[in-house]
């Protein structure tokens, strides 16, 4: 089985929500991966749509590089709504 292709499985649970990574399957090709993913990850109506992607096709950030890579977003508090203080009289905004 290890000589089969490893696919990552993404399932959309309800219309309107994003596909979410749920796990992986081994399969001879993408069609078989879809069928296996259905049997494995949607036995109880968990999904309305499935994507399978060969794991080798995914480019990811390196686990331990987390800090330097995400550094640029660390010091920009003004990007958050809570940064802006408004008087209570303004009400909810």
């Amino acid at each position: 089985m290890s000589e089969w292709i490893l696919f990552e499985v993404f399932v959309r649970s309800k219309h309107g929500l994003n596909h979410k990574h749920v796990g992986s399957v081994h399969a001879a090709d993408a069609n078989m991966a879809l069928e296996s993913a259905r049997d494995l990850y949607t036995r109880r109506n968990e999904g309305v749509s499935i994507w399978v992607v060969p794991s080798a096709q995914i480019t990811a950030t390196a686990g331990d590089e987390k800090e330097p890579f995400f550094d640029p977003s660390q010091d920009k508090v003004y990007r958050h709504a809570s940064f802006y203080e408004l008087p209570d009289e303004v009400g909810h905004m």
Binding site: W4, A27, A28, D29, N31, M32
Partner: peptide, 13 residues
């Protein structure tokens, strides 16, 4: 079965 699946995938490709 596993061999057949690989053969089938190759044929389809």
């Amino acid at each position: 079965v596993r061999e057949a699946a690989v053969a089938h995938a190759a044929k389809r490709q």
